[in-house]
Amino acid sequence: MRPTPSGSSSFRLLSVTLALLISLFSPESEAREFKRIRDISVDCSDALSCDLSTYNAQSELYTVIFRRRASRDAPVELVLGVRETLAPGSEVTMRIDGAEVVRLPVSELSYRAAVYEYIFRGEAEISKLIEYAKTGMDLRVSYRTRGTETVSAFSLSGFIAGLIFMDEVQGRVGREDALYAAAGTPDRDAAPVREITSFSEIPFQIRGHFSDMPSARCGGMDEDRFADLGGFEARTGDSVYLVGLPCGPGGAYNQPFAFWERTGSSFRAVALPVMSAEGPTTSELAWNISWDQERRELTGFFKGRGLGDCGSFDRWIWTERDEGFAFVLVESRVKAECDGDPGGGPDNWPSLWPPE
Protein backbone atom coordinates (compact mmCIF):
# COMPACT_ATOMS: atom_id res chain seq x y z
CA MET A 1 0.00 0.00 0.00
CA ARG A 2 1.31 3.45 -0.91
CA PRO A 3 1.92 5.83 2.08
CA THR A 4 -0.45 8.73 2.65
CA PRO A 5 0.88 12.26 2.03
CA SER A 6 1.07 12.94 5.77
CA GLY A 7 2.99 9.73 6.27
CA SER A 8 5.33 10.67 3.45
CA SER A 9 6.07 14.05 5.07
CA SER A 10 6.74 12.38 8.43
CA PHE A 11 9.11 9.94 6.75
CA ARG A 12 11.04 12.75 5.03
CA LEU A 13 11.27 14.69 8.30
CA LEU A 14 12.59 11.62 10.11
CA SER A 15 15.16 11.01 7.35
CA VAL A 16 16.44 14.59 7.49
CA THR A 17 16.67 14.44 11.28
CA LEU A 18 18.64 11.17 11.16
CA ALA A 19 20.98 12.57 8.49
CA LEU A 20 21.63 15.65 10.63
CA LEU A 21 22.37 13.54 13.70
CA ILE A 22 24.72 11.31 11.70
CA SER A 23 26.57 14.33 10.31
CA LEU A 24 26.98 15.78 13.80
CA PHE A 25 28.29 12.64 15.46
CA SER A 26 30.03 10.82 12.63
CA PRO A 27 33.86 10.62 12.91
CA GLU A 28 34.13 12.04 9.39
CA SER A 29 32.79 15.37 10.64
CA GLU A 30 35.72 15.85 13.06
CA ALA A 31 38.56 18.24 12.25
CA ARG A 32 41.09 15.75 13.58
CA GLU A 33 44.23 15.36 11.45
CA PHE A 34 46.55 12.35 11.38
CA LYS A 35 49.56 11.48 9.26
CA ARG A 36 52.16 8.72 9.37
CA ILE A 37 55.54 9.54 7.79
CA ARG A 38 57.90 6.55 7.90
CA ASP A 39 58.49 6.01 11.64
CA ILE A 40 56.93 9.28 12.80
CA SER A 41 53.23 9.86 13.56
CA VAL A 42 51.51 13.24 13.85
CA ASP A 43 48.08 13.29 15.50
CA CYS A 44 46.18 16.58 15.89
CA SER A 45 42.95 16.94 17.87
CA ASP A 46 39.81 18.87 16.92
CA ALA A 47 41.34 21.87 18.72
CA LEU A 48 44.54 21.34 16.65
CA SER A 49 46.68 20.34 19.60
CA CYS A 50 49.29 18.13 17.93
CA ASP A 51 51.45 15.20 19.04
CA LEU A 52 54.51 14.27 16.96
CA SER A 53 55.61 10.86 18.21
CA THR A 54 57.98 7.98 17.64
CA TYR A 55 57.07 4.57 19.05
CA ASN A 56 58.71 1.36 20.32
CA ALA A 57 56.18 -1.25 21.41
CA GLN A 58 58.85 -3.47 22.99
CA SER A 59 60.02 -0.94 25.59
CA GLU A 60 58.88 0.06 29.06
CA LEU A 61 59.28 3.67 27.94
CA TYR A 62 57.44 3.10 24.69
CA THR A 63 56.90 6.52 23.10
CA VAL A 64 58.54 9.94 22.86
CA ILE A 65 56.16 12.78 21.97
CA PHE A 66 56.65 16.44 21.06
CA ARG A 67 53.32 18.05 21.98
CA ARG A 68 52.17 21.53 21.07
CA ARG A 69 48.87 23.34 21.39
CA ALA A 70 47.57 25.57 18.59
CA SER A 71 47.91 28.99 20.24
CA ARG A 72 50.64 31.20 18.86
CA ASP A 73 52.74 31.37 22.02
CA ALA A 74 52.30 27.72 22.98
CA PRO A 75 55.59 26.05 23.93
CA VAL A 76 56.52 22.53 22.90
CA GLU A 77 56.23 19.90 25.63
CA LEU A 78 58.24 16.68 25.76
CA VAL A 79 56.04 13.74 26.75
CA LEU A 80 57.31 10.26 27.64
CA GLY A 81 54.81 7.39 27.60
CA VAL A 82 55.68 4.65 30.11
CA ARG A 83 54.38 1.31 31.34
CA GLU A 84 56.20 1.58 34.68
CA THR A 85 57.04 4.62 36.74
CA LEU A 86 60.58 5.95 36.65
CA ALA A 87 62.78 5.52 39.69
CA PRO A 88 62.74 8.60 41.99
CA GLY A 89 66.08 10.40 42.08
CA SER A 90 67.16 8.97 38.71
CA GLU A 91 67.73 10.70 35.37
CA VAL A 92 66.51 10.33 31.81
CA THR A 93 69.30 10.68 29.24
CA MET A 94 68.55 11.22 25.56
CA ARG A 95 71.18 10.56 22.87
CA ILE A 96 70.85 11.08 19.12
CA ASP A 97 73.16 9.07 16.88
CA GLY A 98 75.38 8.39 19.89
CA ALA A 99 75.76 11.98 21.08
CA GLU A 100 74.21 12.98 24.41
CA VAL A 101 71.76 15.84 23.87
CA VAL A 102 69.90 16.27 27.16
CA ARG A 103 69.92 14.77 30.66
CA LEU A 104 66.71 15.28 32.61
CA PRO A 105 66.30 14.61 36.35
CA VAL A 106 63.08 12.69 37.02
CA SER A 107 62.30 15.27 39.71
CA GLU A 108 61.83 17.86 36.93
CA LEU A 109 59.23 15.73 35.11
CA SER A 110 55.50 15.96 35.88
CA TYR A 111 53.78 12.59 36.10
CA ARG A 112 50.17 12.10 34.93
CA ALA A 113 49.25 8.78 36.51
CA ALA A 114 45.89 8.49 34.72
CA VAL A 115 47.57 8.25 31.30
CA TYR A 116 51.06 7.00 32.32
CA GLU A 117 52.85 10.05 30.95
CA TYR A 118 55.82 12.09 32.12
CA ILE A 119 55.88 15.70 30.89
CA PHE A 120 58.88 18.01 30.65
CA ARG A 121 58.51 21.72 29.81
CA GLY A 122 62.08 23.05 29.66
CA GLU A 123 62.09 25.14 26.48
CA ALA A 124 65.88 25.30 26.01
CA GLU A 125 66.36 21.54 26.36
CA ILE A 126 63.41 20.70 24.10
CA SER A 127 64.58 23.17 21.44
CA LYS A 128 68.04 21.57 21.50
CA LEU A 129 66.54 18.10 21.21
CA ILE A 130 64.42 19.10 18.20
CA GLU A 131 67.42 20.64 16.41
CA TYR A 132 69.49 17.47 16.88
CA ALA A 133 66.56 15.29 15.82
CA LYS A 134 66.24 17.20 12.52
CA THR A 135 69.56 15.77 11.33
CA GLY A 136 69.57 12.52 13.33
CA MET A 137 68.31 9.02 12.68
CA ASP A 138 68.50 7.15 15.99
CA LEU A 139 67.19 8.30 19.39
CA ARG A 140 68.22 6.37 22.51
CA VAL A 141 66.56 7.07 25.87
CA SER A 142 68.27 5.76 29.02
CA TYR A 143 66.27 5.56 32.25
CA ARG A 144 65.74 3.52 35.43
CA THR A 145 62.66 1.65 36.67
CA ARG A 146 62.64 -0.44 39.83
CA GLY A 147 66.39 -0.08 40.11
CA THR A 148 67.04 -1.45 36.60
CA GLU A 149 68.86 0.65 34.01
CA THR A 150 67.14 0.39 30.61
CA VAL A 151 67.63 1.87 27.13
CA SER A 152 64.79 2.36 24.63
CA ALA A 153 65.59 2.90 20.95
CA PHE A 154 63.48 5.02 18.59
CA SER A 155 63.72 5.84 14.89
CA LEU A 156 63.68 9.49 13.78
CA SER A 157 63.04 8.65 10.13
CA GLY A 158 60.41 11.11 8.92
CA PHE A 159 60.99 13.63 11.72
CA ILE A 160 61.44 16.69 9.47
CA ALA A 161 58.37 15.80 7.39
CA GLY A 162 56.45 15.41 10.65
CA LEU A 163 57.47 18.90 11.80
CA ILE A 164 56.38 20.36 8.47
CA PHE A 165 52.98 18.63 8.64
CA MET A 166 52.50 19.82 12.22
CA ASP A 167 53.33 23.41 11.17
CA GLU A 168 50.88 23.14 8.26
CA VAL A 169 48.00 21.87 10.42
CA GLN A 170 48.55 24.59 13.03
CA GLY A 171 49.01 27.33 10.42
CA ARG A 172 52.58 28.15 11.41
CA VAL A 173 54.37 27.75 8.06
CA GLY A 174 56.46 30.86 7.38
CA ARG A 175 55.85 32.25 10.87
CA GLU A 176 58.48 32.82 13.53
CA ASP A 177 56.88 30.17 15.75
CA ALA A 178 57.16 27.40 13.12
CA LEU A 179 59.12 24.34 14.18
CA TYR A 180 60.74 23.91 10.77
CA ALA A 181 60.06 26.60 8.14
CA ALA A 182 60.27 29.65 10.40
CA ALA A 183 60.21 33.15 8.97
CA GLY A 184 63.59 34.86 9.01
CA THR A 185 65.53 31.63 9.56
CA PRO A 186 68.57 31.65 7.23
CA ASP A 187 68.26 29.23 4.31
CA ARG A 188 65.21 27.49 5.80
CA ASP A 189 63.08 28.28 2.77
CA ALA A 190 65.81 27.41 0.28
CA ALA A 191 65.95 23.99 -1.35
CA PRO A 192 67.75 21.57 0.99
CA VAL A 193 69.80 20.14 -1.90
CA ARG A 194 71.54 22.21 -4.59
CA GLU A 195 72.60 20.49 -7.79
CA ILE A 196 76.12 21.18 -9.11
CA THR A 197 76.46 20.50 -12.84
CA SER A 198 79.42 22.61 -13.99
CA PHE A 199 82.94 23.38 -12.85
CA SER A 200 81.98 27.03 -12.34
CA GLU A 201 79.36 25.98 -9.76
CA ILE A 202 81.94 24.16 -7.64
CA PRO A 203 82.81 26.31 -4.58
CA PHE A 204 86.02 28.16 -5.38
CA GLN A 205 87.70 26.86 -2.21
CA ILE A 206 87.83 23.31 -3.65
CA ARG A 207 87.69 24.04 -7.40
CA GLY A 208 91.44 23.51 -7.75
CA HIS A 209 90.94 19.77 -7.12
CA PHE A 210 89.21 19.58 -10.53
CA SER A 211 91.86 21.32 -12.61
CA ASP A 212 93.87 19.69 -15.43
CA MET A 213 97.05 19.64 -13.35
CA PRO A 214 98.51 16.15 -12.70
CA SER A 215 98.47 16.80 -8.95
CA ALA A 216 94.74 17.64 -8.88
CA ARG A 217 92.85 15.19 -6.73
CA CYS A 218 89.83 14.96 -9.08
CA GLY A 219 91.45 16.14 -12.31
CA GLY A 220 91.25 14.63 -15.78
CA MET A 221 87.48 14.85 -16.04
CA ASP A 222 85.60 16.26 -19.04
CA GLU A 223 83.12 18.99 -18.07
CA ASP A 224 80.38 17.49 -20.23
CA ARG A 225 80.70 14.21 -18.33
CA PHE A 226 80.72 16.14 -15.06
CA ALA A 227 77.47 17.85 -16.11
CA ASP A 228 75.84 14.54 -17.05
CA LEU A 229 76.70 12.98 -13.69
CA GLY A 230 76.12 16.01 -11.50
CA GLY A 231 77.12 16.61 -7.93
CA PHE A 232 75.23 18.09 -4.99
CA GLU A 233 75.44 20.30 -1.93
CA ALA A 234 73.00 19.21 0.80
CA ARG A 235 72.09 21.21 3.89
CA THR A 236 72.48 18.93 6.90
CA GLY A 237 72.48 21.49 9.73
CA ASP A 238 71.89 25.18 10.39
CA SER A 239 75.26 26.09 8.81
CA VAL A 240 76.60 22.67 7.77
CA TYR A 241 76.49 21.25 4.25
CA LEU A 242 77.66 18.00 2.66
CA VAL A 243 79.22 18.42 -0.80
CA GLY A 244 79.49 15.36 -3.04
CA LEU A 245 81.13 15.68 -6.48
CA PRO A 246 82.25 13.33 -9.29
CA CYS A 247 85.99 12.91 -8.84
CA GLY A 248 88.16 11.81 -11.76
CA PRO A 249 87.20 10.35 -15.14
CA GLY A 250 85.93 7.03 -13.81
CA GLY A 251 85.26 4.11 -16.13
CA ALA A 252 82.62 2.60 -18.36
CA TYR A 253 80.24 1.70 -15.53
CA ASN A 254 81.88 3.01 -12.34
CA GLN A 255 82.21 6.65 -11.28
CA PRO A 256 83.96 7.75 -8.08
CA PHE A 257 82.71 10.64 -5.93
CA ALA A 258 84.55 12.66 -3.29
CA PHE A 259 83.03 14.49 -0.32
CA TRP A 260 83.57 17.61 1.73
CA GLU A 261 81.88 19.12 4.79
CA ARG A 262 81.24 22.85 4.41
CA THR A 263 80.75 25.01 7.48
CA GLY A 264 80.33 28.62 6.42
CA SER A 265 83.21 29.18 3.99
CA SER A 266 85.42 26.43 5.44
CA PHE A 267 85.76 23.04 3.74
CA ARG A 268 86.98 19.75 5.17
CA ALA A 269 87.58 16.60 3.10
CA VAL A 270 85.53 13.68 4.44
CA ALA A 271 86.67 10.06 4.41
CA LEU A 272 84.32 7.08 4.32
CA PRO A 273 84.73 4.04 6.58
CA VAL A 274 84.77 0.79 4.61
CA MET A 275 85.38 -2.91 5.25
CA SER A 276 88.08 -4.87 3.49
CA ALA A 277 89.18 -8.50 3.61
CA GLU A 278 91.82 -7.44 6.15
CA GLY A 279 89.41 -5.46 8.32
CA PRO A 280 88.04 -1.92 8.72
CA THR A 281 89.73 0.94 6.87
CA THR A 282 88.76 4.21 5.14
CA SER A 283 88.38 5.41 1.57
CA GLU A 284 88.46 8.89 0.03
CA LEU A 285 85.89 7.85 -2.59
CA ALA A 286 82.49 6.21 -2.98
CA TRP A 287 81.29 4.74 -6.27
CA ASN A 288 78.02 5.16 -8.18
CA ILE A 289 76.36 6.94 -5.29
CA SER A 290 72.81 7.75 -4.27
CA TRP A 291 71.97 10.38 -1.61
CA ASP A 292 68.76 10.34 0.50
CA GLN A 293 68.31 13.83 1.98
CA GLU A 294 65.63 12.97 4.52
CA ARG A 295 67.49 9.96 5.90
CA ARG A 296 70.92 11.63 5.54
CA GLU A 297 71.88 8.34 3.90
CA LEU A 298 74.51 7.67 1.21
CA THR A 299 74.79 4.42 -0.75
CA GLY A 300 77.56 3.33 -3.09
CA PHE A 301 77.56 0.41 -5.55
CA PHE A 302 80.85 -0.56 -7.19
CA LYS A 303 80.16 -2.90 -10.11
CA GLY A 304 82.60 -5.73 -10.73
CA ARG A 305 81.37 -5.63 -14.32
CA GLY A 306 78.63 -3.90 -16.27
CA LEU A 307 76.09 -6.65 -15.69
CA GLY A 308 76.07 -5.76 -11.99
CA ASP A 309 76.20 -9.40 -10.89
CA CYS A 310 79.23 -8.83 -8.66
CA GLY A 311 80.98 -6.05 -6.80
CA SER A 312 80.45 -4.24 -3.50
CA PHE A 313 77.62 -2.28 -1.88
CA ASP A 314 77.96 0.15 1.04
CA ARG A 315 75.54 2.30 3.01
CA TRP A 316 76.52 5.17 5.30
CA ILE A 317 74.64 7.60 7.56
CA TRP A 318 75.84 11.22 7.73
CA THR A 319 75.97 11.78 11.49
CA GLU A 320 76.90 14.64 13.79
CA ARG A 321 79.74 14.01 16.23
CA ASP A 322 81.45 16.19 18.84
CA GLU A 323 84.16 17.14 16.32
CA GLY A 324 81.75 17.66 13.41
CA PHE A 325 79.84 15.49 10.96
CA ALA A 326 81.12 12.11 9.78
CA PHE A 327 79.99 9.12 7.75
CA VAL A 328 79.08 6.04 9.79
CA LEU A 329 79.13 2.72 7.95
CA VAL A 330 75.92 0.82 8.63
CA GLU A 331 76.04 -1.81 5.89
CA SER A 332 78.69 -3.37 3.66
CA ARG A 333 78.05 -6.26 1.24
CA VAL A 334 80.27 -8.02 -1.32
CA LYS A 335 79.75 -10.59 -4.07
CA ALA A 336 83.09 -11.67 -5.52
CA GLU A 337 81.91 -14.18 -8.15
CA CYS A 338 80.88 -12.66 -11.48
CA ASP A 339 78.77 -15.69 -12.43
CA GLY A 340 75.87 -14.04 -14.26
CA ASP A 341 73.56 -14.39 -11.23
CA PRO A 342 72.87 -11.03 -9.52
CA GLY A 343 71.83 -12.91 -6.37
CA GLY A 344 68.72 -10.82 -5.78
CA GLY A 345 70.67 -7.55 -6.07
CA PRO A 346 73.36 -6.02 -3.85
CA ASP A 347 70.90 -5.63 -0.93
CA ASN A 348 70.96 -9.43 -0.63
CA TRP A 349 74.67 -10.12 -1.09
CA PRO A 350 76.81 -11.61 1.73
CA SER A 351 77.36 -9.12 4.52
CA LEU A 352 80.80 -7.90 5.58
CA TRP A 353 79.29 -5.41 8.03
CA PRO A 354 77.55 -6.03 10.26
CA PRO A 355 78.74 -9.65 10.42
CA GLU A 356 76.12 -12.19 9.44
Rank of each mutant, 00 (worst) to 15 (best):
L52T: 00
L52W: 00
L52D: 00
S53T: 06
S53G: 08
T54C: 07
T54S: 09
Y55V: 13
A57L: 15
A57Y: 14
A57K: 15
A57M: 15
Q58M: 15
Q58H: 15
Q58C: 14
S59N: 15
S59C: 14
E60V: 15
L61I: 09
T63I: 09
V64E: 12
F66D: 02
R67N: 05
R69M: 14
R69S: 15
R69P: 11
A70D: 11
A70S: 12
S71K: 03
R72F: 07
R72A: 12
R72C: 06
D73M: 10
A74V: 10
A74L: 10
P75V: 12
V76I: 12
V76H: 08
V76R: 04
V76L: 10
L78E: 05
L80K: 03
G81D: 04
V82F: 11
V82T: 12
R83Y: 02
R83I: 02
E84M: 13
E84G: 14
T85H: 01
L86E: 07
A87M: 06
P88W: 04
P88Q: 11
P88H: 12
P88L: 11
G89E: 10
E91H: 11
E91F: 12
E91N: 12
V92N: 02
T93F: 00
T93R: 08
T93M: 01
M94H: 02
M94R: 03
R95D: 08
R95I: 05
R95W: 07
I96A: 01
A99D: 00
A99M: 00
E100Y: 07
E100V: 04
V101A: 05
V101W: 04
V101K: 02
V101G: 04
V102P: 03
V102M: 05
R103P: 03
R103H: 01
L104I: 13
P105K: 02
P105E: 05
P105V: 07
V106W: 02
V106K: 02
S107T: 10
S107Q: 09
E108I: 04
E108R: 09
S110G: 01
Y111K: 09
R112T: 01
R112W: 00
R112L: 03
A113Q: 13
A114D: 07
A114T: 08
V115C: 04
V115M: 01
Y116L: 06
Y116K: 12
Y116M: 07
E117K: 10
I119P: 02
I119N: 07
F120I: 13
F120M: 09
F120C: 08
R121A: 11
G122D: 11
E125K: 14
I126N: 06
L129K: 02
L129E: 03
L129I: 06
E131P: 02
A133W: 03
K134N: 03
K134V: 04
T135Y: 07
T135R: 07
G136I: 03
G136F: 01
M137S: 12
M137F: 11
M137I: 12
D138A: 11
D138Y: 09
R140F: 00
R140H: 04
R140K: 06
V141A: 05
S142D: 06
S142P: 01
S142H: 02
S142Y: 08
Y143T: 04
R144P: 10
R146H: 10
R146P: 02
R146K: 12
T148V: 11
T148Y: 10
E149P: 07
T150A: 14
T150R: 15
S152T: 13
S155E: 13
